[in-house]
Simulated assay, not measured.
Amino acid sequence: MKSHFQFSNKQRNGIFLLLAIVVMVQCVYWFAPKIFASSKVDFPEDKDEIETFRKEIDSLRMVEIENKKPKIYPFNPNYITDYKGYTLGMTNEEIDRLHKFRATNQWVNSAKDFQKVTKVSDSFLATISPYFKFPDWVTNPKPKSQGYSNSYSNTKKPKTYQQKIDLNKATASQLRKVYGIGEKLSERIIKYRNKYKGGFISDIQLSEVYGLSPEVIERIQNDFTVKTPRAINRFNLNTATRDELVTIQYIGYEVANNIIEERTLRDGFKSLEELTKVEDFPIKKFEIIKLYLQL
């Protein structure tokens, strides 16, 4: 044992230094937390401000939760698919009733009609009916205009097709013989006709001339008609591409896309009149647009 405790001076100094370091570390371990704890500064709490921040955080959290919820966008209930009906919460029986009704080529034109056909509950109808979007011709029907009638139109005998003058060859002076056509209106008709090489396609294009009322147009058609229509490209409605559709007057890219989407849903159009059911379709220009289409 004696040999284990025989150290040189350098070794003895090293042992003492190591012991001193150990003692210092132990002192720091025990006394430092108490020193820092006693020096901690207590800041006064503003409870009102903290509560305001808490409420703001809660409101932001609720907004984020609402934003993550599935959203329902306006839709036409006539075109509810199986998947769409399932996501809305409809039962299979309710969806089948709607599809069976639509198979008869009938239309749902109001929330009341929708409930009558599908037999959904009042509470469910109140939930989804605010999202129903029907075409403008359903929600804002235009009153039928009264036919023009006076002694002039009653006394004039209608002319046959052979007796009428070709509208594409009529002169301004000939047009001015029609009651209600003056110098300016006759010039507008000629100017519109000359915009296109070959002139008018059909009598319906008279409605495109600014200032011509339906009554005046009717009187023009008593004496004039298009006998030599200009040649145009007519597209097959069920095969036309988007780029072909946008070349038609009054059809833009958005309407063309809607037509193609509707065509896909219907598995092809059965008549040109079905175009009026397309979303955002310019119904007032239907007679002009259908000049360029065929089935």
Rank of each mutant, 00 (worst) to 15 (best):
Q174F: 01
T264A: 15
L125A: 04
D280E: 11
Y196L: 08
S3G: 12
W107Q: 08
Q6I: 11
C27M: 14
T247S: 07
K227R: 03
P158A: 03
I65K: 11
L98I: 09
D122H: 05
R242H: 06
E187K: 13
D96S: 11
T171K: 07
I165A: 03
V28I: 14
N222D: 13
F269S: 05
K169N: 12
K2I: 12
S145K: 15
N92M: 08
E208H: 05
K116F: 08
Y192P: 00
I80P: 03
P141D: 04
Y86I: 02
H99M: 10
T160F: 00
N233E: 15
S38H: 11
I57E: 07
I189W: 05
V120A: 05
F269M: 06
S59A: 14
D58P: 00
V63S: 09
S153I: 13
S123V: 07
I80G: 03
K112C: 00
S271A: 13
T91H: 00
K284A: 14
K270A: 08
L167A: 12
S271F: 06
Y196D: 09
K100S: 14
I217K: 08
C27Q: 11
S8V: 01
P158I: 03
A103G: 10
L293I: 04
I204P: 00
L98R: 05
I72T: 10
K277C: 01
L265P: 01
E273V: 06
K100T: 15
I190S: 02
Y161Q: 12
K157P: 01
E261T: 14
L245Q: 04
T139Q: 02
K285A: 13
I165K: 12
I35E: 05
K164P: 01
N258S: 02
Y83I: 08
E56K: 10
P74Y: 07
K270S: 12
L265Y: 15
F124K: 08
F101T: 07
K227V: 01
A20W: 06
V28T: 12
G147P: 03
F114E: 04
K156T: 14
R188I: 00
N78Q: 09
N76P: 06
L98V: 02
G198N: 05
D203R: 05
G198C: 04
L19M: 12
R97V: 00
N150R: 05
S38N: 13
K144Y: 04
K116A: 13
V216W: 01
S149A: 06
G85M: 02
V226W: 09
M90G: 04
Y29D: 08
P135R: 14
D280G: 00
V209G: 03
K71E: 10
A231E: 14
